[in-house]
Amino acid sequence: MIDIHCHILHGIDDGPVTIEESLLMAKEAVVEGINTIIATPHHRNNKYENKKESISRQVRELNSVLKEENIPLTILPGQETRIFGEILNDYNNGEILTLANTDYLFIEFPSSSVPRYAERLLYEIQMAGLTPIIVHPERNKEIIENPNVLYNLVKNGALTQVTAASIAGYFGKSIKKLSHQLIIHNLTHFVASDAHNTHNRSFKLNEAFDIIENDIGVDYVYLFTENSDLLIRNENINKELPEQIKRRKILGIF
């Protein structure tokens, strides 16, 4: 199994602090059935700056330690970049890192809103030959209140990735419900862990896939696992036509 979103590199963002903690995460990943992880440290989120060169170096170092420790896990380089207007300039200057050096690029929105320029910028990213993947949209306040914001972005070519813990309910009932609706309405294309540690932000991928299989259908499990494999091979992923979510707000709860 491939996990395309994980904060396993130590000492550079809000993931593990030490290499020992990174190794604990690696061992837990193997138990989970994960054999490949894309390391995606935060970048340009007003707190952390992790540029392409430094991430690639840390990935090489962690892979070396994993080999020494006989842990059967491969780490690939990636980055979780907060959306900003000059992202393509930084990409061309060698500071922005795609996922596993493919044409797929993670884009993170602020937790409370979707910037007004997002639609235009995501279009420009696609015109530059990259495919933007919006991370954890189910936890964005504006999208929670109006899922059609996300529908319009997906309709215009953006992809999305939902967090396993969201599907399993660890972020609350409303986020769990929206996560399921995003799957049913073809508004997400990947499920990943966004794991940060082994205690309160661990992988949860098997739990999420069990829920998807039981509540939505096993075909979606195959779709998400295959898409992660297609991504690291830099091939076109599987996707269906997105559908709008029609919802009513009842007593402030969705």
Score class of each variant (00 low, 15 high):
residue 235 E to K: 12
residue 60 R to S: 13
residue 93 N to R: 11
residue 73 L to V: 07
residue 240 E to G: 10
residue 145 E to W: 00
residue 5 H to I: 05
residue 62 L to H: 08
residue 231 L to I: 02
residue 45 N to D: 15
residue 247 R to K: 15
residue 35 N to H: 02
residue 62 L to E: 13
residue 111 S to Q: 15
residue 129 G to M: 09
residue 161 Q to H: 06
residue 149 V to I: 13
residue 245 I to G: 06
residue 32 E to H: 04
residue 40 T to M: 04
residue 53 E to S: 14
residue 174 S to T: 10
residue 15 G to P: 00
residue 151 Y to P: 04
residue 143 I to F: 03
residue 164 A to Y: 00
residue 231 L to R: 05
residue 183 I to T: 04
residue 1 M to Q: 08
residue 17 V to A: 10
residue 194 D to I: 06
residue 137 P to C: 15
residue 75 I to N: 00
residue 114 V to G: 04
residue 155 K to G: 08
residue 187 L to K: 07
residue 137 P to N: 09
residue 154 V to H: 00
residue 191 V to F: 02
residue 190 F to Q: 00
residue 129 G to K: 09
residue 9 L to W: 04
residue 115 P to G: 15
residue 229 D to R: 14
residue 57 R to Y: 10
residue 102 T to G: 02
residue 57 R to C: 07
residue 74 T to L: 10
residue 97 L to I: 00
residue 140 N to D: 08
residue 72 P to V: 08
residue 38 I to D: 00
residue 234 N to E: 02
residue 111 S to T: 14
residue 25 M to P: 02
residue 65 V to N: 06
residue 179 S to Q: 11
residue 91 Y to A: 11
residue 108 E to C: 06
residue 36 T to I: 13
residue 42 H to E: 03
residue 230 L to H: 09
residue 122 L to S: 05
residue 16 P to W: 00
residue 6 C to A: 15
residue 29 A to N: 03
residue 95 E to W: 06
residue 203 F to I: 07
residue 88 L to G: 08
residue 8 I to C: 06
residue 43 H to N: 15
residue 186 N to S: 14
residue 94 G to T: 06
residue 23 L to F: 14
residue 188 T to C: 13
residue 124 E to M: 15
residue 147 P to F: 10
residue 27 K to N: 09
residue 79 Q to S: 04
residue 184 I to F: 09
residue 242 P to H: 01
residue 153 L to A: 07
residue 77 P to V: 01
residue 157 G to C: 02
residue 158 A to M: 04
residue 160 T to D: 14
residue 103 D to N: 14
residue 14 D to Q: 12
residue 35 N to A: 02
residue 135 V to F: 01
residue 228 S to D: 11
residue 38 I to G: 04
residue 97 L to S: 03
residue 252 G to L: 11
residue 103 D to E: 06
residue 130 L to K: 10
residue 103 D to T: 05
residue 173 K to D: 13
residue 195 A to Q: 07
residue 242 P to Y: 10
residue 34 I to M: 08
residue 195 A to E: 01
residue 27 K to V: 05
residue 17 V to H: 13
residue 91 Y to F: 11
residue 40 T to D: 04
residue 160 T to S: 15
residue 131 T to G: 01
residue 98 T to G: 11
residue 249 K to Q: 03
residue 134 I to F: 12
residue 244 Q to R: 15
residue 2 I to W: 05
residue 42 H to Q: 07
